[in-house]
Design a protein around this nucleic acid. Structure first.
Lengths: 246, 246
DNA sequence: CGTGCTTTTGAAAATCATCAAGTATAGTGG
DNA sequence: CCACTATACTTGATGATTTTCAAAAGCACG
Protein backbone atom coordinates (compact mmCIF):
# COMPACT_ATOMS: atom_id res chain seq x y z
CA UNK A 1 0.00 0.00 0.00
CA UNK A 2 2.56 2.62 1.04
CA UNK A 3 4.80 3.75 -1.78
CA UNK A 4 8.46 2.95 -1.45
CA UNK A 5 9.87 6.27 -2.45
CA UNK A 6 13.44 5.18 -2.80
CA UNK A 7 14.79 1.71 -3.51
CA UNK A 8 17.00 0.14 -0.86
CA UNK A 9 20.23 1.06 -2.58
CA UNK A 10 23.40 1.21 -0.48
CA UNK A 11 25.17 3.71 -2.69
CA UNK A 12 22.26 6.09 -2.57
CA UNK A 13 21.58 5.43 1.08
CA UNK A 14 25.15 6.31 1.87
CA UNK A 15 24.41 9.99 2.03
CA UNK A 16 20.64 10.00 2.22
CA UNK A 17 20.50 11.08 5.87
CA UNK A 18 23.04 13.83 5.29
CA UNK A 19 20.64 15.46 2.84
CA UNK A 20 17.48 14.77 4.85
CA UNK A 21 15.19 17.73 5.52
CA UNK A 22 14.69 16.50 9.06
CA UNK A 23 18.42 16.18 9.69
CA UNK A 24 19.17 18.63 12.47
CA UNK A 25 15.68 18.83 13.85
CA UNK A 26 14.63 15.30 14.74
CA UNK A 27 16.07 12.49 16.79
CA UNK A 28 18.44 11.70 13.95
CA UNK A 29 20.44 14.80 14.82
CA UNK A 30 21.74 12.83 17.79
CA UNK A 31 23.54 10.42 15.48
CA UNK A 32 27.05 11.66 14.72
CA UNK A 33 28.26 12.14 11.12
CA UNK A 34 30.13 8.85 11.07
CA UNK A 35 26.99 6.95 12.07
CA UNK A 36 24.84 8.25 9.26
CA UNK A 37 25.69 5.38 6.96
CA UNK A 38 24.26 2.94 9.44
CA UNK A 39 21.26 5.16 10.07
CA UNK A 40 20.58 5.42 6.35
CA UNK A 41 20.87 1.68 5.90
CA UNK A 42 18.44 1.10 8.75
CA UNK A 43 15.78 3.43 7.41
CA UNK A 44 13.01 2.59 4.99
CA UNK A 45 11.71 5.69 3.27
CA UNK A 46 7.95 5.72 2.72
CA UNK A 47 5.35 8.21 1.63
CA UNK A 48 1.64 8.47 2.29
CA UNK A 49 -1.24 10.41 0.78
CA UNK A 50 -3.79 12.31 2.90
CA UNK A 51 -6.10 10.01 4.88
CA UNK A 52 -3.72 7.07 4.44
CA UNK A 53 -3.13 5.30 7.72
CA UNK A 54 0.35 4.09 8.63
CA UNK A 55 -0.18 3.12 12.26
CA UNK A 56 -3.21 1.19 13.47
CA UNK A 57 -4.12 1.55 17.14
CA UNK A 58 -3.80 -1.80 18.89
CA UNK A 59 -1.47 -3.35 16.30
CA UNK A 60 1.80 -4.89 17.36
CA UNK A 61 4.32 -2.05 17.61
CA UNK A 62 7.13 -3.23 15.36
CA UNK A 63 8.30 0.05 13.90
CA UNK A 64 9.31 3.57 14.73
CA UNK A 65 8.85 6.50 12.43
CA UNK A 66 10.52 9.83 11.87
CA UNK A 67 8.56 12.34 9.81
CA UNK A 68 10.57 14.03 7.07
CA UNK A 69 7.87 16.13 5.45
CA UNK A 70 4.16 16.79 5.73
CA UNK A 71 1.73 16.58 8.62
CA UNK A 72 0.27 13.52 10.30
CA UNK A 73 -2.34 13.10 13.02
CA UNK A 74 -2.17 10.68 15.94
CA UNK A 75 -5.55 9.57 17.17
CA UNK A 76 -7.30 7.39 19.71
CA UNK A 77 -10.72 5.89 19.08
CA UNK A 78 -13.63 4.75 21.19
CA UNK A 79 -15.60 1.65 20.16
CA UNK A 80 -18.57 3.78 19.05
CA UNK A 81 -16.48 5.86 16.64
CA UNK A 82 -15.81 8.96 18.71
CA UNK A 83 -12.21 9.93 18.25
CA UNK A 84 -9.64 12.20 19.83
CA UNK A 85 -6.58 13.48 18.02
CA UNK A 86 -3.78 13.50 20.56
CA UNK A 87 -1.20 15.21 18.38
CA UNK A 88 -0.37 16.68 15.00
CA UNK A 89 3.12 15.71 13.88
CA UNK A 90 5.48 17.44 11.49
CA UNK A 91 9.05 17.16 10.17
CA UNK A 92 11.48 15.88 12.79
CA UNK A 93 8.80 14.32 14.97
CA UNK A 94 9.31 10.81 16.22
CA UNK A 95 6.44 8.31 16.54
CA UNK A 96 5.89 4.83 17.77
CA UNK A 97 7.41 4.60 21.23
CA UNK A 98 5.32 2.43 23.52
CA UNK A 99 5.91 0.68 26.81
CA UNK A 100 3.65 -2.19 25.90
CA UNK A 101 4.10 -4.01 22.65
CA UNK A 102 1.04 -2.48 21.02
CA UNK A 103 0.57 0.94 19.46
CA UNK A 104 -1.56 3.01 21.81
CA UNK A 105 -2.69 5.28 18.98
CA UNK A 106 -3.25 5.27 15.25
CA UNK A 107 -1.57 7.60 12.76
CA UNK A 108 -2.78 9.04 9.45
CA UNK A 109 -1.40 11.49 6.94
CA UNK A 110 -3.16 14.86 6.92
CA UNK A 111 -0.98 16.33 4.19
CA UNK A 112 1.20 14.13 1.98
CA UNK A 113 3.76 12.63 4.35
CA UNK A 114 7.28 11.42 3.78
CA UNK A 115 8.87 9.49 6.61
CA UNK A 116 11.59 7.04 7.56
CA UNK A 117 10.62 3.77 9.18
CA UNK A 118 12.90 1.84 11.55
CA UNK A 119 12.36 -1.53 13.15
CA UNK A 120 12.12 -1.68 16.92
CA UNK A 121 15.20 -3.88 16.96
CA UNK A 122 17.24 -1.52 14.82
CA UNK A 123 16.44 1.41 17.01
CA UNK A 124 17.48 -0.50 20.10
CA UNK A 125 20.87 -1.20 18.50
CA UNK A 126 21.28 2.42 17.44
CA UNK A 127 20.44 3.61 20.94
CA UNK A 128 23.01 1.30 22.46
CA UNK A 129 25.72 2.51 20.10
CA UNK A 130 24.74 6.17 20.18
CA UNK A 131 23.75 7.08 23.74
CA UNK A 132 23.08 10.62 22.55
CA UNK A 133 20.15 9.22 20.62
CA UNK A 134 18.56 7.81 23.74
CA UNK A 135 19.07 11.15 25.45
CA UNK A 136 17.48 12.87 22.49
CA UNK A 137 14.51 10.51 22.66
CA UNK A 138 14.06 11.23 26.35
CA UNK A 139 14.09 14.93 25.61
CA UNK A 140 11.58 14.38 22.85
CA UNK A 141 9.27 12.28 25.04
CA UNK A 142 9.50 14.85 27.83
CA UNK A 143 8.56 17.61 25.43
CA UNK A 144 5.62 15.60 24.12
CA UNK A 145 4.50 15.04 27.68
CA UNK A 146 4.60 18.76 28.37
CA UNK A 147 2.47 19.40 25.30
CA UNK A 148 0.06 16.66 26.35
CA UNK A 149 -0.35 18.24 29.77
CA UNK A 150 -1.00 21.63 28.22
CA UNK A 151 -3.63 19.95 26.04
CA UNK A 152 -5.22 18.35 29.12
CA UNK A 153 -5.59 21.81 30.61
CA UNK A 154 -7.22 22.94 27.38
CA UNK A 155 -9.60 19.98 27.14
CA UNK A 156 -10.52 19.98 30.81
CA UNK A 157 -10.84 23.66 31.60
CA UNK A 158 -11.09 25.92 28.56
CA UNK A 159 -14.20 26.91 26.61
CA UNK A 160 -14.57 26.71 22.84
CA UNK A 161 -13.25 30.23 22.21
CA UNK A 162 -10.21 29.71 24.42
CA UNK A 163 -9.51 26.34 22.82
CA UNK A 164 -9.49 27.78 19.33
CA UNK A 165 -7.32 30.69 20.41
CA UNK A 166 -4.83 28.33 22.11
CA UNK A 167 -4.77 26.12 19.06
CA UNK A 168 -4.09 28.93 16.60
CA UNK A 169 -1.31 30.39 18.73
CA UNK A 170 0.27 26.97 19.32
CA UNK A 171 0.16 26.33 15.56
CA UNK A 172 1.68 29.70 14.78
CA UNK A 173 4.53 28.98 17.20
CA UNK A 174 5.04 25.35 16.21
CA UNK A 175 5.33 26.20 12.54
CA UNK A 176 7.70 29.07 13.22
CA UNK A 177 5.26 31.63 11.87
CA UNK A 178 5.69 33.63 15.04
CA UNK A 179 8.38 33.59 17.72
CA UNK A 180 8.10 31.17 20.65
CA UNK A 181 8.02 34.06 23.10
CA UNK A 182 6.72 37.57 22.63
CA UNK A 183 4.56 38.99 19.88
CA UNK A 184 5.26 38.79 16.17
CA UNK A 185 6.34 41.80 14.12
CA UNK A 186 3.85 41.18 11.31
CA UNK A 187 0.42 39.48 11.46
CA UNK A 188 1.27 35.77 11.38
CA UNK A 189 -0.29 33.69 8.65
CA UNK A 190 -1.06 30.28 10.11
CA UNK A 191 -1.39 27.29 7.80
CA UNK A 192 -4.05 24.79 8.80
CA UNK A 193 -3.48 21.65 6.72
CA UNK A 194 -6.14 19.77 8.70
CA UNK A 195 -9.88 20.14 8.07
CA UNK A 196 -12.52 21.38 10.53
CA UNK A 197 -13.36 17.85 11.66
CA UNK A 198 -9.74 17.25 12.62
CA UNK A 199 -9.55 20.54 14.49
CA UNK A 200 -12.69 19.52 16.36
CA UNK A 201 -11.31 16.08 17.13
CA UNK A 202 -8.16 17.72 18.48
CA UNK A 203 -9.96 20.33 20.59
CA UNK A 204 -12.74 18.12 21.90
CA UNK A 205 -15.39 20.07 19.98
CA UNK A 206 -17.88 19.27 17.25
CA UNK A 207 -17.22 20.57 13.77
CA UNK A 208 -20.16 23.00 14.02
CA UNK A 209 -18.73 24.54 17.16
CA UNK A 210 -15.33 24.96 15.52
CA UNK A 211 -16.94 26.66 12.55
CA UNK A 212 -19.12 28.94 14.68
CA UNK A 213 -16.21 29.89 16.94
CA UNK A 214 -13.95 30.65 13.99
CA UNK A 215 -16.65 32.89 12.56
CA UNK A 216 -17.01 34.62 15.93
CA UNK A 217 -13.27 35.31 16.11
CA UNK A 218 -13.42 36.68 12.58
CA UNK A 219 -16.42 38.86 13.40
CA UNK A 220 -14.50 40.28 16.38
CA UNK A 221 -11.64 41.22 14.06
CA UNK A 222 -9.20 38.92 15.83
CA UNK A 223 -8.50 36.65 12.90
CA UNK A 224 -9.00 36.62 9.16
CA UNK A 225 -10.07 33.35 7.57
CA UNK A 226 -8.20 32.50 4.39
CA UNK A 227 -10.03 30.66 1.63
CA UNK A 228 -7.68 27.70 1.52
CA UNK A 229 -7.06 26.24 5.00
CA UNK A 230 -5.40 29.02 6.91
CA UNK A 231 -5.91 32.14 8.99
CA UNK A 232 -4.15 35.43 9.58
CA UNK A 233 -3.92 36.54 13.19
CA UNK A 234 -4.94 40.20 13.11
CA UNK A 235 -5.06 40.90 16.84
CA UNK A 236 -2.35 38.77 18.37
CA UNK A 237 -2.68 40.21 21.88
CA UNK A 238 -6.40 39.56 21.99
CA UNK A 239 -5.91 35.99 20.79
CA UNK A 240 -3.13 35.37 23.26
CA UNK A 241 -5.10 36.62 26.24
CA UNK A 242 -8.02 34.49 25.09
CA UNK A 243 -5.74 31.49 24.97
CA UNK A 244 -5.27 32.17 28.68
CA UNK A 245 -1.52 32.07 28.81
CA UNK A 246 -0.55 28.98 26.90
CA UNK B 1 8.97 24.33 55.53
CA UNK B 2 9.36 20.68 54.40
CA UNK B 3 10.46 18.33 57.18
CA UNK B 4 13.82 16.67 56.77
CA UNK B 5 12.82 13.17 57.73
CA UNK B 6 16.28 11.74 58.03
CA UNK B 7 19.50 13.55 58.79
CA UNK B 8 22.19 13.41 56.12
CA UNK B 9 24.14 10.63 57.77
CA UNK B 10 26.47 8.58 55.58
CA UNK B 11 26.31 5.47 57.72
CA UNK B 12 22.57 5.47 57.64
CA UNK B 13 22.44 6.49 54.00
CA UNK B 14 24.63 3.59 53.11
CA UNK B 15 21.72 1.21 53.00
CA UNK B 16 18.82 3.61 52.86
CA UNK B 17 18.01 2.93 49.21
CA UNK B 18 18.28 -0.82 49.76
CA UNK B 19 15.43 -0.60 52.23
CA UNK B 20 13.37 1.93 50.31
CA UNK B 21 9.72 1.05 49.68
CA UNK B 22 10.06 2.37 46.16
CA UNK B 23 13.16 0.28 45.46
CA UNK B 24 12.20 -2.10 42.70
CA UNK B 25 9.33 -0.04 41.37
CA UNK B 26 10.70 3.39 40.49
CA UNK B 27 13.54 4.70 38.40
CA UNK B 28 15.94 3.82 41.21
CA UNK B 29 15.54 0.16 40.30
CA UNK B 30 17.75 0.89 37.30
CA UNK B 31 20.70 1.64 39.56
CA UNK B 32 22.69 -1.53 40.26
CA UNK B 33 23.37 -2.67 43.83
CA UNK B 34 26.88 -1.28 43.85
CA UNK B 35 25.61 2.17 42.88
CA UNK B 36 23.15 2.49 45.74
CA UNK B 37 25.64 4.19 48.03
CA UNK B 38 26.00 7.02 45.55
CA UNK B 39 22.27 7.13 44.98
CA UNK B 40 21.62 7.33 48.72
CA UNK B 41 24.18 10.07 49.17
CA UNK B 42 22.63 12.06 46.35
CA UNK B 43 19.10 11.87 47.75
CA UNK B 44 17.50 14.25 50.21
CA UNK B 45 14.58 12.62 51.98
CA UNK B 46 11.63 14.94 52.58
CA UNK B 47 8.08 14.60 53.75
CA UNK B 48 5.01 16.71 53.14
CA UNK B 49 1.58 16.97 54.71
CA UNK B 50 -1.63 17.09 52.65
CA UNK B 51 -2.05 20.36 50.72
CA UNK B 52 1.66 21.17 51.08
CA UNK B 53 3.15 22.20 47.79
CA UNK B 54 6.61 20.99 46.80
CA UNK B 55 6.75 22.10 43.18
CA UNK B 56 5.56 25.51 42.02
CA UNK B 57 4.56 25.82 38.36
CA UNK B 58 6.87 28.25 36.61
CA UNK B 59 9.70 28.00 39.14
CA UNK B 60 13.20 27.18 38.01
CA UNK B 61 13.40 23.38 37.73
CA UNK B 62 16.38 22.56 39.91
CA UNK B 63 15.25 19.24 41.36
CA UNK B 64 13.86 15.86 40.53
CA UNK B 65 11.69 13.85 42.86
CA UNK B 66 10.94 10.18 43.40
CA UNK B 67 7.87 9.43 45.50
CA UNK B 68 8.44 6.82 48.22
CA UNK B 69 5.06 6.85 49.91
CA UNK B 70 1.73 8.66 49.70
CA UNK B 71 -0.08 10.37 46.84
CA UNK B 72 0.65 13.68 45.17
CA UNK B 73 -1.16 15.64 42.50
CA UNK B 74 0.41 17.46 39.56
CA UNK B 75 -1.56 20.45 38.40
CA UNK B 76 -1.60 23.26 35.88
CA UNK B 77 -3.34 26.54 36.56
CA UNK B 78 -4.93 29.27 34.48
CA UNK B 79 -4.51 32.91 35.52
CA UNK B 80 -8.14 33.09 36.70
CA UNK B 81 -7.77 30.16 39.10
CA UNK B 82 -9.21 27.34 37.02
CA UNK B 83 -7.00 24.32 37.44
CA UNK B 84 -6.43 20.96 35.83
CA UNK B 85 -4.81 18.04 37.61
CA UNK B 86 -2.68 16.29 35.00
CA UNK B 87 -1.69 13.33 37.15
CA UNK B 88 -1.89 11.64 40.51
CA UNK B 89 1.46 10.22 41.55
CA UNK B 90 2.25 7.37 43.92
CA UNK B 91 5.24 5.36 45.16
CA UNK B 92 7.89 4.86 42.49
CA UNK B 93 6.75 7.76 40.35
CA UNK B 94 9.30 10.21 39.07
CA UNK B 95 8.62 13.96 38.81
CA UNK B 96 10.35 17.03 37.58
CA UNK B 97 11.61 16.31 34.07
CA UNK B 98 11.30 19.31 31.83
CA UNK B 99 12.76 20.33 28.52
CA UNK B 100 12.82 23.97 29.44
CA UNK B 101 14.38 25.09 32.69
CA UNK B 102 11.04 25.81 34.37
CA UNK B 103 8.57 23.40 35.96
CA UNK B 104 5.57 23.12 33.65
CA UNK B 105 3.30 22.04 36.51
CA UNK B 106 2.96 22.36 40.26
CA UNK B 107 2.86 19.48 42.74
CA UNK B 108 1.08 19.08 46.07
CA UNK B 109 0.68 16.28 48.57
CA UNK B 110 -2.80 14.74 48.62
CA UNK B 111 -1.97 12.21 51.32
CA UNK B 112 1.14 12.56 53.49
CA UNK B 113 4.03 12.15 51.06
CA UNK B 114 7.57 10.90 51.56
CA UNK B 115 9.95 11.44 48.68
CA UNK B 116 13.58 11.68 47.68
CA UNK B 117 14.84 14.84 46.07
CA UNK B 118 17.77 14.95 43.64
CA UNK B 119 19.44 17.93 42.05
CA UNK B 120 19.31 18.25 38.29
CA UNK B 121 23.08 18.04 38.16
CA UNK B 122 23.23 14.90 40.30
CA UNK B 123 20.74 13.13 38.12
CA UNK B 124 22.71 14.00 35.03
CA UNK B 125 25.81 12.41 36.54
CA UNK B 126 23.88 9.33 37.62
CA UNK B 127 22.43 8.95 34.13
CA UNK B 128 25.86 9.19 32.57
CA UNK B 129 27.26 6.52 34.87
CA UNK B 130 24.21 4.27 34.83
CA UNK B 131 22.80 4.20 31.31
CA UNK B 132 20.08 1.83 32.52
CA UNK B 133 18.69 4.73 34.50
CA UNK B 134 18.31 6.85 31.40
CA UNK B 135 16.60 3.94 29.68
CA UNK B 136 14.31 3.56 32.69
CA UNK B 137 13.46 7.26 32.55
CA UNK B 138 12.60 7.01 28.87
CA UNK B 139 10.32 4.08 29.63
CA UNK B 140 8.75 6.07 32.43
CA UNK B 141 8.22 9.16 30.29
CA UNK B 142 6.77 7.03 27.50
CA UNK B 143 4.33 5.44 29.92
CA UNK B 144 3.31 8.83 31.28
CA UNK B 145 2.74 9.99 27.73
CA UNK B 146 0.48 7.01 27.06
CA UNK B 147 -1.53 7.82 30.18
CA UNK B 148 -1.73 11.46 29.16
CA UNK B 149 -3.09 10.49 25.76
CA UNK B 150 -5.68 8.25 27.35
CA UNK B 151 -6.66 11.18 29.54
CA UNK B 152 -6.96 13.45 26.48
CA UNK B 153 -9.44 10.97 25.02
CA UNK B 154 -11.36 11.08 28.30
CA UNK B 155 -11.37 14.88 28.55
CA UNK B 156 -12.13 15.48 24.91
CA UNK B 157 -14.69 12.81 24.15
CA UNK B 158 -16.26 11.18 27.20
CA UNK B 159 -19.27 12.33 29.21
CA UNK B 160 -19.37 12.67 33.00
CA UNK B 161 -20.52 9.11 33.63
CA UNK B 162 -17.86 7.63 31.36
CA UNK B 163 -15.18 9.83 32.91
CA UNK B 164 -16.00 8.66 36.43
CA UNK B 165 -16.14 5.04 35.30
CA UNK B 166 -12.76 5.35 33.55
CA UNK B 167 -11.27 7.03 36.59
CA UNK B 168 -12.44 4.37 39.04
CA UNK B 169 -11.20 1.53 36.87
CA UNK B 170 -7.86 3.22 36.24
CA UNK B 171 -7.49 3.76 39.98
CA UNK B 172 -8.36 0.16 40.74
CA UNK B 173 -5.74 -1.01 38.26
CA UNK B 174 -3.05 1.50 39.22
CA UNK B 175 -3.30 0.62 42.89
CA UNK B 176 -3.23 -3.09 42.18
CA UNK B 177 -6.72 -3.59 43.59
CA UNK B 178 -7.69 -5.40 40.42
CA UNK B 179 -5.59 -7.02 37.67
CA UNK B 180 -4.35 -4.91 34.76
CA UNK B 181 -6.29 -7.10 32.32
CA UNK B 182 -9.47 -9.08 32.82
CA UNK B 183 -11.98 -8.86 35.61
CA UNK B 184 -11.24 -9.17 39.31
CA UNK B 185 -12.23 -12.20 41.36
CA UNK B 186 -13.74 -10.19 44.21
CA UNK B 187 -15.37 -6.73 44.13
CA UNK B 188 -12.38 -4.36 44.15
CA UNK B 189 -12.28 -1.79 46.92
CA UNK B 190 -10.79 1.38 45.46
CA UNK B 191 -9.15 3.90 47.79
CA UNK B 192 -9.68 7.52 46.81
CA UNK B 193 -7.27 9.59 48.88
CA UNK B 194 -8.19 12.74 46.95
CA UNK B 195 -11.34 14.75 47.63
CA UNK B 196 -14.21 15.45 45.22
CA UNK B 197 -12.71 18.76 44.13
CA UNK B 198 -9.51 16.99 43.08
CA UNK B 199 -11.46 14.32 41.22
CA UNK B 200 -13.32 17.10 39.42
CA UNK B 201 -10.10 18.94 38.60
CA UNK B 202 -8.70 15.71 37.18
CA UNK B 203 -11.76 14.80 35.13
CA UNK B 204 -12.59 18.27 33.87
CA UNK B 205 -15.84 18.37 35.85
CA UNK B 206 -17.25 20.50 38.65
CA UNK B 207 -17.47 19.04 42.11
CA UNK B 208 -21.29 18.95 41.97
CA UNK B 209 -21.19 16.91 38.78
CA UNK B 210 -18.74 14.46 40.35
CA UNK B 211 -21.01 14.09 43.35
CA UNK B 212 -24.17 13.65 41.30
CA UNK B 213 -22.54 11.14 38.98
CA UNK B 214 -21.17 9.12 41.88
CA UNK B 215 -24.65 9.01 43.36
CA UNK B 216 -26.09 7.92 40.01
CA UNK B 217 -23.58 5.06 39.75
CA UNK B 218 -24.49 4.04 43.29
CA UNK B 219 -28.21 4.20 42.54
CA UNK B 220 -27.64 1.94 39.53
CA UNK B 221 -25.95 -0.60 41.80
CA UNK B 222 -22.64 -0.29 39.95
CA UNK B 223 -20.62 1.03 42.87
CA UNK B 224 -20.94 1.32 46.62
CA UNK B 225 -19.70 4.53 48.22
CA UNK B 226 -17.65 3.99 51.36
CA UNK B 227 -17.88 6.56 54.13
CA UNK B 228 -14.19 7.37 54.20
CA UNK B 229 -12.89 8.18 50.72
CA UNK B 230 -13.35 5.01 48.77
CA UNK B 231 -15.72 2.92 46.69
CA UNK B 232 -16.38 -0.74 46.08
CA UNK B 233 -16.97 -1.73 42.48
CA UNK B 234 -20.04 -3.96 42.60
CA UNK B 235 -20.65 -4.39 38.88
CA UNK B 236 -17.22 -4.40 37.27
CA UNK B 237 -18.45 -5.29 33.77
CA UNK B 238 -20.95 -2.45 33.74
CA UNK B 239 -18.34 0.02 34.92
CA UNK B 240 -15.82 -1.20 32.40
CA UNK B 241 -18.19 -0.94 29.46
CA UNK B 242 -19.14 2.54 30.67
CA UNK B 243 -15.49 3.48 30.72
CA UNK B 244 -15.63 2.68 27.02
CA UNK B 245 -12.66 0.40 26.80
CA UNK B 246 -9.92 2.18 28.65
C1' DC C 1 -22.43 23.27 -15.10
C1' DG C 2 -23.69 19.63 -12.29
C1' DT C 3 -21.93 16.50 -8.48
C1' DG C 4 -20.02 15.58 -4.18
C1' DC C 5 -17.68 17.19 -0.42
C1' DT C 6 -16.63 20.56 3.20
C1' DT C 7 -18.13 24.34 5.69
C1' DT C 8 -21.46 27.46 7.51
C1' DT C 9 -25.76 28.70 9.64
C1' DG C 10 -30.17 27.95 12.22
C1' DA C 11 -33.24 25.95 15.75
C1' DA C 12 -34.04 22.67 19.33
C1' DA C 13 -32.26 19.57 22.82
C1' DA C 14 -28.97 17.86 26.18
C1' DT C 15 -25.34 18.07 29.25
C1' DC C 16 -22.90 20.23 32.46
C1' DA C 17 -22.05 24.57 35.20
C1' DT C 18 -23.63 27.79 38.42
C1' DC C 19 -26.02 29.42 42.32
C1' DA C 20 -28.01 28.25 46.60
C1' DA C 21 -29.17 25.62 50.41
C1' DG C 22 -29.10 21.64 53.17
C1' DT C 23 -26.72 17.40 55.27
C1' DA C 24 -22.94 14.85 56.98
C1' DT C 25 -18.50 14.42 59.09
C1' DA C 26 -14.37 15.46 61.63
C1' DG C 27 -12.05 18.08 64.74
C1' DT C 28 -12.06 21.30 68.92
C1' DG C 29 -12.75 22.88 73.32
C1' DG C 30 -15.62 23.23 77.27
C1' DC D 1 -19.10 13.32 76.42
C1' DC D 2 -21.39 16.70 73.95
C1' DA D 3 -22.25 20.94 71.72
C1' DC D 4 -19.99 23.90 68.30
C1' DT D 5 -17.56 25.05 64.26
C1' DA D 6 -15.42 24.26 59.97
C1' DT D 7 -15.11 21.64 56.08
C1' DA D 8 -16.60 18.41 52.72
C1' DC D 9 -20.19 16.51 50.37
C1' DT D 10 -24.91 16.15 48.52
C1' DT D 11 -29.11 17.78 46.47
C1' DG D 12 -32.19 21.06 44.01
C1' DA D 13 -33.40 24.71 40.68
C1' DT D 14 -31.91 27.46 37.03
C1' DG D 15 -28.99 28.90 33.26
C1' DA D 16 -25.30 28.74 29.73
C1' DT D 17 -22.60 26.38 26.57
C1' DT D 18 -22.19 22.95 23.50
C1' DT D 19 -24.27 19.17 20.92
C1' DT D 20 -27.49 17.45 17.82
C1' DC D 21 -30.37 17.56 13.90
C1' DA D 22 -31.32 19.79 9.64
C1' DA D 23 -30.58 22.50 5.72
C1' DA D 24 -28.24 25.87 2.97
C1' DA D 25 -24.02 27.85 1.04
C1' DG D 26 -19.23 27.43 -0.87
C1' DC D 27 -15.80 25.17 -3.31
C1' DA D 28 -13.20 21.88 -6.06
C1' DC D 29 -13.35 18.67 -9.75
C1' DG D 30 -14.62 16.24 -13.62
Amino acid sequence: MPAEVEPICPTFMLNKCTHCDARGSGVCEAVPEDGLTRLSAAATALSFEPAQRFITEGDKAEHFFVINAGTAKLLKMLPDGRQQIVSFCGPGDFLGLSVFSLYSYGAEAVEPVRLCRFSRFTLRCLMTDFPAMERRLLKSATFELTLAQEQMLLLGRKNARERLASFLIARARATGTCPARGRPAVPPQVALPMNRTDIGDFLGLRIETVSRTMTALKTDGIIEILPRCGVIIRDFDALESLAACI
